[in-house]
């Protein structure tokens, strides 16, 4: 076994041992013909990784809501992601919606007025 492969095997085994809660890797190092200093060298990093990377729990609200949405028990909540946006973004979204709606109304109204005016002009032209 090359020294690189040996080291790879040792690190995999050492990680499994740390994950199982073992905190002395010297004996393990012996099995892979590694000097004890090498075990010490890696042990602190592996233990730090093990204590830092802990399982986190998603909130129960999120877990239940997503399941309900996926199961089709409730409609996909549009308000839910919107509520998490910064206030100024929410405000901008609402203003854009209102502005767009008003623009549509205006076009319809002005368009309607324009059509009436055109029709009247046409009538007058025909009458002449």
């Amino acid at each position: 076994m090359s020294s690189d492969t040996q080291m790879q095997e040792f690190l995999s085994a050492a990680t499994d041992a740390v994950l199982r809660g073992e905190n002395n890797l010297e004996r393990l190092a012996g099995r892979y013909d590694m000097p004890p200093e090498v075990a010490d060298d890696w042990q602190s990093l592996l233990m730090e990784l093990n204590s830092t990377l802990v399982v986190v729990q998603p909130s129960a609200r999120f877990e239940n809501q997503l399941k309900a949405e996926l199961m089709g028990r409730q409609p996909v909540a549009v308000r839910w992601p919107l509520k998490r946006l910064p206030v100024r973004v929410q405000l901008a979204a609402v203003l854009t919606l209102v502005g767009g709606f008003l623009l549509l109304l205006r076009n319809r109204f002005v368009g309607g007025v324009g059509k009436v005016a055109l029709a009247k002009k046409e009538e007058a032209r025909v009458a002449r």
Partner: peptide
């Protein structure tokens, strides 16, 4: 069957979330 998908969700959601 959405309920079957719900079971898969229960099994893996937390792992994927993490």
């Amino acid at each position: 069957d959405k309920e079957a998908f719900g079971e898969l969700y229960e099994r893996y959601m937390r792992k994927i979330y993490n």
